[in-house]
Design a binder for these strands. Structure first.
Length: 110
DNA sequence: CAGGTGACATGAG
DNA sequence: ACTCATGCCACCT
C-alpha cells in the first residue's frame, strides 16, 4: 500500500505522526510535511527553504515530489510553498495553481 | 539493480 | 523578461 494514495484527516500532531507512520512514510517525507505545517497563515516558504530546514539543502526538488502526493491536504498547508524565484509554482489539488494563488490572496500572503 | 519521473533551482543565451 | 539545458534528490516501477 502506497502512502501517497491514502487521504487522511488529522487534527492533532500526535495523530498526524501516528498516521504518517501507519502510512509507512520515510523520515524525509515526514520531515517535509511537518516543516510545511509550521508555515503560518499569511506566510509563504520556498521549496528550497523547506529542504534546508530539514537538513537536506539540495533536495529541494524532492520536496516538490513529496508535496505532490500530500495525503494530508488541507491540514498540511502545502499551498504556502512557492518557488524561489517568486512565481507561484504548481498545485495538485483541485483548481491547480490558480486555486493556490487564490488561497494565498485570501490569507493575505500577497 | 537500473531507468524514469517531477508542485525545483540556476545559469546561459 | 523568457526559454532552454543541466544538475539534483528521493521515490517509483
Amino acid at each position: 500500500m502506497r502512502a501517497s494514495n491514502i487521504p487522511v484527516s488529522v487534527r492533532s500532531l500526535p495523530k498526524l505522526k501516528a498516521a504518517m507512520d501507519k502510512l509507512g512514510m520515510t523520515d524525509f517525507q515526514k520531515a517535509v510535511l511537518l516543516e510545511v505545517r509550521r508555515i503560518h497563515k499569511g506566510d509563504t516558504a520556498t521549496y528550497k527553504r523547506i529542504a534546508e530546514r530539514i537538513g537536506h539543502p539540495k533536495a529541494y526538488r524532492a520536496v516538490g515530489t513529496v508535496l505532490r502526493n500530500n495525503p494530508f491536504a488541507p491540514f498540511i498547508p502545502c499551498h504556502r510553498v512557492i518557488r524561489s524565484d517568486g512565481s507561484i509554482g504548481n498545485y495538485s489539488a483541485r483548481g491547480g495553481s490558480k486555486a493556490k494563488l487564490k488561497l494565498l490572496e485570501s490569507e493575505g500572503a500577497l
